[in-house]
């Protein structure tokens, strides 16, 4: 029997995005694009999630929320920044209330550019995140073992 693998769960949080990327992320979960066929499932609970998908830049108020969600997620975890705002702050970078991209508060693994990010590129990002997650799982297990052995 082929080895059964875990399906990573995906959590979406909207930073201070303009909604454009959010609805594209949502569109990815609906019939035409259906990202769930790549073995992820959308969840609303950070404690269930493995892949953290953030859209939009970070402002002073949601920085804490993003950090908190990140800390609530179990290890290993992958962070996916979707859209130009989430990557760098984008068009809003010069606004007084924008700190910058998601990487100003938490480490980001995969960047998906685009304003708004197209569903195809979001899917590409998610597929890469799934691969990276599996990679991380292996090394993380090894790390845990060596920690226990030590």
């Amino acid at each position: 029997m082929a080895k059964i693998e875990k399906s990573p769960w995906l959590l979406h949080y909207d930073g201070s995005s303009c909604n454009g990327c959010d609805i594209e992320v949502l569109a990815c979960t609906t019939p035409v694009y259906d990202v769930e066929r790549f073995g992820v499932i959308n969840t609303g609970n950070p404690m269930h999630a493995d892949i953290f998908l953030v859209t939009g830049g970070i402002n002073s108020q949601n920085a804490e929320v993003v950090k908190q969600i990140y800390n609530q997620m179990p290890n290993p975890k992958v962070v996916l920044a979707v859209g130009t705002c989430a990557c760098t702050g984008g068009i809003f970078k010069e606004c007084y209330n924008i700190l910058g991209g998601v990487d100003t508060v938490i480490p980001v693994d995969i960047y998906v550019p685009g304003c708004a990010a197209r569903p195809e590129s979001i899917i590409d990002g998610v597929v890469q995140a799934v691969a990276l997650y599996k990679e991380k799982q292996k090394t993380w297990k090894k790390e845990e073992k060596t920690e226990k052995g030590a």
Partner: peptide
């Protein structure tokens, strides 16, 4: 509110 506040009206100066 305030989780999405960017202050884009202030961009008029830039």
């Amino acid at each position: 509110i305030g989780y999405v506040h960017r202050g884009l009206e202030s961009l008029v100066t830039k």
